[in-house]
Design a protein around this nucleic acid. Structure first.
Lengths: 223, 223
DNA sequence: GTCTATAAGGAGATAGAC
DNA sequence: GTCTATCTCCTTATAGAC
């Protein structure tokens, strides 16, 4: 556990698996492809991890753990500064989306890691979804109460709707940055985390402060 | 093409495939599982569709075509009413997200269809992504110019960033409605399209109108 | 810990009778 | 158009030598 050796077989597998999962998806990335990139033997995966499912979980946990820890630490600092008062909305949102978007810069892997991270949300499969709930359940709860403290007048149902929108906007940006570059004709550069965070926080904060939708009907329907 | 027979083998396959893809994902849903639900023979899939890839495309096109047509028709009506003036932002956004969210109500399948529709955005695979660009390219371009006309003072780079956020929030809501019910403790009901649309439009319109993010401190500048 | 060899099964696709 | 039977390939996983 305390080993640091870089040529470690266990780590070689983890790195190659991460890249393959990000590039091809969990199903399409076979263990055989992973070992060919890692330069290790097929049996080594089962020796070190036991199964493909366990490998997926290990790949995921290595990145998600630090991100969620950073989120909670930043939220702690915000709450400490605010005392009993209202929390600053932009800072709370930045604490939620910033660490995830900055993951691209922290890792030498760059955008590859981001795709993996964002993709898991959309992927089906009981095992993955259980893992997600386990990894993110606490973070979601903490940020739900923090956002409530940042926008106290917002009813609770609207709060949860809007949290879902935040998660969706963040996830899509993380998962599929290339599409933004494409549709903008190269005008936007999603690989720059600072610009991404600034744009995202401004948009989401305004959304959180939006006046409540009227119960009224929608626009006239064409038939 | 003009056939209406409901027990049609071709349609039975399409229905079963849609459900299986939505439930399990494109990779995990095997043709053998699809035929067992449809009650048809394995060879029938290849006779009617040729390959699994072509089947995926057929499943997708059946739903996306009408949705995109509805989007463009509503946008046409909005632009006709507005003449040369500024477009009403809420209505443009509603034209974009409404038809997709209402898909759940129009189809007897309900939420199943929604999951399929939203999931495809996040899925990897060259073939799927090419198909997406082909199916949605025109719609994205039309709505980009429409949104620009609705928020004329917004710089073009911010416009594309925010469009990406819109697509993400909408897609996540469509793809994974159950998570909202879960994290809200049953307070929010994502299966009610009208509430979902109202909440989503209010949030996104406010986001589109957000002041531009500053580079470092509070100094929102306009172009 | 790492290797070879192989097990055991599921996948998509097809040929040819009816 | 529909069926049975089968082909070929690739997957995860394991047993056992070194």
């Amino acid at each position: 556990m305390g080993k640091l050796s870089e040529g470690d077989t266990k780590t070689l597998i983890l790195d190659a698996a991460e890249q393959a999962f990000a590039e091809l998806g969990f199903d399409a990335a076979s263990l055989r492809r992973i070992i060919s990139v890692a330069g290790v033997n097929l049996a080594a995966i089962h020796y070190h991890y036991g199964s493909k499912e366990a490998l997926i979980e290990a790949v995921f946990a290595r990145r998600v753990g630090p991100v969620n820890q950073a989120r909670l630490e930043r939220l702690d600092a915000i709450e400490r500064r605010a005392g009993q008062g209202v929390l600053p909305l932009e800072e709370v949102i930045e604490a939620l989306v910033g660490p995830a978007l900055r993951l691209a810069r922290d890792s030498a892997k760059g955008p590859v890691v981001m795709r993996l991270y964002g993709r898991t949300v959309a992927e089906p499969g009981e095992h993955l979804q259980k893992m997600l709930s386990h990894q993110f359940g606490g973070v979601v709860k903490r940020f739900a109460t923090a956002l409530q403290r940042a926008v106290p007048e917002l009813p609770r149902d609207a709060l949860y709707w809007r949290m879902q929108f935040i998660i969706g906007a963040m996830g899509h940006l993380i998962c599929d940055p290339q599409r933004l570059k494409l549709i903008s004709g190269g005008l936007c550069d999603p690989s720059d985390p600072n610009t991404a965070i600034r744009q995202l926080v401004a948009f989401l904060a305004a959304g959180m402060r939006a006046p409540l939708p009227s119960k009224r009907k929608e626009a006239p329907r064409k038939r």
